[in-house]
Amino acid sequence: YKIYPYDSLIVTNSISVKLPKDVDRTRLERHLSPEEFQEVFGMSIEEFDRLALWKRNDLKKKALLF
């Protein structure tokens, strides 16, 4: 996945969300650098992957990456 800054990946309720063209809309968190991922989620990507799907989705919603 290509890395993008968190600010360019957050999704708000506005209709005209302009995400970069090559971003996987269903896995926005994968486009964060490991350092920024840790900062946003408070855990590593590996720890995040071990969580239940509902928990990952809940965290993504709170981080505006859903």
Rank of each mutant, 00 (worst) to 15 (best):
A63Y: 07
Q38V: 11
L28P: 02
V17D: 15
V40S: 03
R50F: 08
D22M: 04
H31K: 02
S14Q: 13
R25F: 08
Y6R: 02
W54I: 09
D58E: 14
L64V: 04
N57S: 07
V23K: 01
I15D: 15
N13S: 13
K60F: 02
Y1W: 09
I15M: 15
Q38N: 13
R56G: 03
K21S: 14
L64E: 06
W54G: 10
D24P: 02
Y6I: 03
T26F: 14
S44D: 14
P20R: 04
S33I: 05
S14I: 10
L32R: 00
F41N: 00
F66I: 09
A63V: 10
V11Y: 08
F66G: 07
R56P: 01
L59R: 03
R30T: 03
R56A: 06
L19Q: 06
L9V: 02
E36I: 06
I3A: 05
L32W: 01
G42S: 12
E29D: 03
E46Y: 10
E29G: 00
K61N: 06
K55Q: 14
F48N: 00
P34T: 14
E36A: 07
V40W: 04
L65N: 01
I15H: 15
S14T: 11
S44N: 14
R50A: 12
V40T: 06
T26K: 10
D22R: 03
L32M: 04
K61M: 10
D49S: 07
K2E: 12
I45P: 07
D24Y: 05
R27C: 08
K60C: 02
V23N: 01
S14Y: 04
K61S: 07
K62W: 06
R30H: 04
W54Y: 10
Y1K: 11
L28S: 02
R27I: 05
T26L: 12
K62V: 08
D49I: 04
D7E: 15
D58K: 12
K2N: 13
S44H: 11
V17R: 14
P20M: 06
D58N: 11
R27N: 14
M43R: 04
Y6K: 03
K61R: 11
E35I: 11
E47C: 08
E35H: 10
L19T: 08
R56L: 02
S14M: 12
K2V: 14
K18N: 15
T26S: 13
E46N: 11
N13W: 04
S44C: 13
N57F: 08
K2Q: 13
A63P: 00
R50Y: 09
K55V: 13
R25K: 12
K61P: 00
I10D: 02
K18T: 14
E47R: 08
L28T: 02
L51F: 06
A52C: 12
R27A: 11
A63R: 06
E29W: 01
